[in-house]
Simulated scan of single mutants.
Amino acid sequence: MPIDTNKQPIIVKKVFKHAGHHGGAWKIAFADFATAMMAFFMLLWILGSTTKEQKAAISKYFNNPSAFDGVATSPSQAVGEGTGSKPSIIDFEGAVDMGPESQSMQTPDQIDEMAEELDRERLESLRKVLEEALNKSQTLAPYKDQLLIDIMPEGLRIQIVDKENRTMFDLGSAQLKDYTKEILKELGSIINEVPNRISITGHTDARPLSGNYSNWELSTERANAARRALIEGGMREDRVARIVGFASTVPFDKNDPNNPINRRISIIVMNKKADEAIQSEPSTPIQTLIEH
């Protein structure tokens, strides 16, 4: 068969292109690097031009921008009833990072200052929660006029006082009335939301008791009965730092020693300084903690 010499062979040529140094990807990487370096040097410049106080404030903000998230708008609803798990009313844990890394950036004075400020804010928030509970809680609201709350140098003080026709205890007894126990149980649940320890003091009026049983024993036993009720309400047992009975020596009404209001239980949610005072002298009554 004759060969057709007019047909030319078909040749396929593959061409491989190498980007090499002629591509543009390196430019993007270099731009990213330059931007990062600019941000880094700006950060160094800012750090070099700020004071220690400004650095402390910035550090505190980024550790926790909202130190008091979790404060319930209705304490009685947040506390709930029964002994089951309850949502947190006040979330204070970790409000300011006081760990080793944070402390290494602060002077001892600054750390103490921050701790004291946290204490003040925590107790003030607790006061607001308690005051709202007095208005909304089905347990606490009926006894609003017998629950006195104030901030004092040693911390937040909660006083439960007697009325002529509504006593906390049976007369001459450390036996709690049922409604008093319910009040203390709800207070225990709220107090347990903060890490501060508490001091409980019992007070009586000046009426003497018969026999060898005096107002000293009575006031101490009443304070201890209050402790048990607080724990029943959910407060941790290690929150109690001190229990004291003052008998009638620190009357609420100094003009009338027999006024029923002098019969009261006082609970102090202590700040850091008051707690440290108790720990440094555990066997000696501390006069600064006596109510004024």
Rank of each mutant, 00 (worst) to 15 (best):
Q287I: 12
G172R: 01
A115W: 01
A115F: 02
P100D: 15
I278H: 12
D91G: 06
S210C: 04
Y61S: 04
R263S: 08
V129K: 00
S189K: 06
P2T: 13
P285C: 07
K17T: 14
T5M: 09
K60C: 10
T50A: 12
A229I: 01
P142N: 12
I268W: 05
K273F: 10
I286A: 11
K128I: 14
M152Q: 14
W26G: 15
T288P: 02
L187E: 09
E186C: 04
W26A: 15
I278D: 11
Q175F: 02
L218N: 01
D170M: 10
M114E: 12
S125I: 08
Q138E: 14
L289T: 04
I265E: 04
I3C: 10
E131M: 08
V161A: 14
I89P: 03
E93A: 15
N196F: 01
Q159P: 04
M235Y: 09
R264Y: 07
D4V: 06
V194H: 10
L43C: 06
K136F: 05
L187Q: 09
S280C: 11
M168A: 10
V79N: 03
V269H: 00
L289M: 10
S219A: 05
L130C: 00
S85P: 03
A25S: 05
P108T: 12
L156H: 09
A56G: 02
R227L: 10
I90P: 00
G94V: 06
D69N: 13
D32H: 07
I231P: 00
T5K: 05
K273T: 15
P285S: 09
S266E: 14
W26M: 13
A72R: 00
I191A: 06
T284K: 13
F92H: 08
M270P: 03
R197S: 14
R264T: 00
I111P: 00
V12D: 09
S280Q: 15
I268G: 05
T204Y: 00
W26T: 12
P260R: 04
H292P: 12
A115G: 02
G172I: 02
K144F: 06
M152S: 14
L184T: 02
K27E: 13
K144A: 14
P153R: 11
T249Y: 10
Q159A: 15
Q54V: 07
I231F: 04
T73D: 10
